[in-house]
Design a protein around this nucleic acid. Sequence first.
DNA 1: CTTACTACAGTTTTT
DNA 2: CTGTAGTAAG
Length: 665
Amino acid sequence: MYLNINQTEAVNSIKGPCLILAGAGSGKTKVIISKIIYLINNCGYQSNHIAALTFTNKAAQEMKNRISEQICTTESKKIIISTFHALGMKIIRSELKTLGMKSNFSLFDEQDQIMLLKEISLKYLKENKNSLKTLLSFISNWKSKLLTPMQVLKLVKSKLERIFADCYKKYDNYLRTCNILDFDDLIFLPTLLFKNNLSARIRWQKKIRYLLVDEYQDTNEIQYELIKLLSNSDNNFTLVGDDDQSIYSWRGARPQNILLLKEDYPTLQVIKMEHNYRSSQRILKAANFLIANNPHIFKKNLFSELDYGSKIKVSITENEEHEAKKVVKKIISHHRIHHTTYNDYAILYRSNYQCRILEKILLHNHIPYHISSSFSLLSRPEIKHLISYLRFVVNPNDNNAFLKIINLPSRQIGSVTLNKLTTWAKKNKKSFFDASIDIELKKILTVRSINNLEKFIFWIQSIINLVELTPYDVLDNIVKDIKYEKWIYKNTIDPNIRTCKINNISIFSKWIKDMLKGNQTDTPLNLSQIITKFTLRDVIDNTVDNHDIDKVQLMTLHASKGLEFPVVFIIGMEEGILPHYSAIADNVDEERRLAYVGITRAKKELFFSYCKKRYQYGETLYPQPSRFLFELPQNDLIWTENIQIKNTNQLNILSLKKILKKQFF
DNA sequence: CTTACTACAGTTTTT
DNA sequence: CTGTAGTAAG
C-alpha cells in the first residue's frame, strides 16, 4: 500500500500516545489498517493483542473486511475489531465473577428503557413521552460521567433534577435486581471495574497491548476514561479523529476530548493528515467553505490534487415527489451516459422518513436500491416479539420480556390479571415470573386466570429446560408451540405483508443458524450471546450481499460517515430539515458538520436538491432553502432556476411551532 | 377478556 | 399521512 509522508509517520509512530488528525478522505482507515499490519509484521505484536474500536457496527464491519484482504483470515479474526459497546460486552462476559453478575443477563434497548422509566416515573412526571426521553438522557448523561445514583443525589440542584435522580436510583435498582444491563452499562461497568480493581485492569491491559480508536471525536467522557484505563503504562495507543466530523454530540460525544488528550499525555504525538484523496478540488472547496463557518479546535487545511471537477448542481423542485423523480431521472441518464454501476450513486438525507418516497419512485422505475437503515429486520415487530421470547427464556426475571410475550398470542391473560400480578409482585419485591408461581398470589386471582397463567408457566418452563439445546432449536420450538405462523396469518389482513412476515421469521432463524455455524473455531455462541448481539445490532446482513449486487445506496447522513461514492445526492436541503428544526435555535454547527460529512462523501459529482413545497402531517409547508447552500462558493454552483430569496419572516407554521415547543419545555 | 374504533402524536441522528 | 395508544362496546 502506498503511503504519503504523514501517513507513513502515522503508521510508524508506535511508541507512546499518538493522535492522528485526519481530514475527510485523507486515508484514515487505510492508515489504521496499515498500522495494525505493521504492528503484527514489524513490531512483534500478536494479532490477538491488538484492538481497534469504532462507533458503529458498519465501520467495524468495513474495517474487518478490509483487513482480511490484507492478511490471512486466521490472523485477522483474532484482532479485536468492534464497537465500544461490543468490547464492553466482551469484557463484562469474561469478568462476570469479578463483577458479581450472573451470565444470563438481559440487555435493554431504548424501548425497554422507556417502558421501565414510564413505570418508575408514574408518580412524579406527567405521562409525556418527551419528558421520559429527557429523563432517559439525564440518566444516560450521568452514567457517561461515571456517576452512581448515590453520587447524583448529592449533586442535584433543582427540584426536577432531584426527581430525575430519584428515578435514576429506582431505575438502577431495578436493573441490578433483575440482572439487566442497558447500553450505557456496557461502558459504565467495565470502566468502574478497571477503576476499582487493579488486577482486572492489568488483566485487560495484558490482553489489549495496542489500542486504536477510530472516530475519536465521537468519544464521550466515560469512553475517554475507558481508553485511559485500558492503555498500559507505556500509553501505546493511536487515536484517529476529525473534529469537523463530530456529529454525535446528542449522544454525549465531546470533541474537546481531543484537547484534553494533550494535557493528559504531554508526550502526545500529533500528526495531521490533510491531503484528501477522495474528492475533486471543487467539492473539497465547497466543503471547506461550508465548514469555515464553524469554530475550530485545530487549524486544518484540507487539499486535493485531483481534477477541479464538474460544477455542483442545486436542483429546485416543486415537492418531495418531484424531488425524488428528478434524482432518479438523473441517476438513470447519468448511468446510461457514463456506463457506471448503480452502487456508484448514493442518496443521502437527514432523517429516515425521507427515504420512503424515494423508495417508491425507485421501485417504480425498476432501479435496484439498498437502504441501510439501522437493521430493519430486527426492528420488525414479529422479530422483536420472538427476541422477547428468547430473552425471557434466558432471563425469566426480565419483566419487560414477560409483559411482551405473556398474552401474545392470546392466552386469555388480560389487563385485570396482569394488574393484580404486577402490583402484587412489586409489593412483594418479586419478579413477575416468580410472582406467577407463588402460591400467595393465587389467593387474589380468579380460577380462570390461575389456570391460564399456570398453563403458560408450565409451557415456558418446558422451553427453559430446552436451553441446553442449540439456540436454533429453542427458537424453533417456540415458534411451533405458539403456532406463530398461524397467529400471524390470522392477524394480518394484507396477504403480501403476511408472506413478508412469515418470510422474516425464516430469515431470522436462518441468521441464528449462520451465527452458530460461522463461529465454529471458537466455542459456539450461546443463546444469551446471540440475543445481546442482536440487541447491539452486531450482526452481518447475510440476506443481501451488498458488495456483489449493484444497487443505488440510500442512507442517512449519519450512516454515510466513513463511506465514499462517485456521485452523491443530498436531498431535502431546506431550513427545517437540514438544519433540522430541533437544532435551528441552538445547534446549527452540528448540522453544518452533518452537511460537511455529506459533501465530503462525494468523489466526482455532487447534487443538492430541495422542495419549494412539502407536505407534512397533512399540512402544506413552503420551506426556505437551507442556509448552508448560501455558504457554499456560489461560482461553483449551478442552480436549476434563479431563486428569489424570500423574506424569511415567512417562517412556516410548523417550524415555528416546534421552536416554541422547544423553548417552553 | 377481546375487538374495534377514535384520537392523537410524531419523525434526528445510534449503540 | 401513518402508526400507536387509549377507550368503549361486545
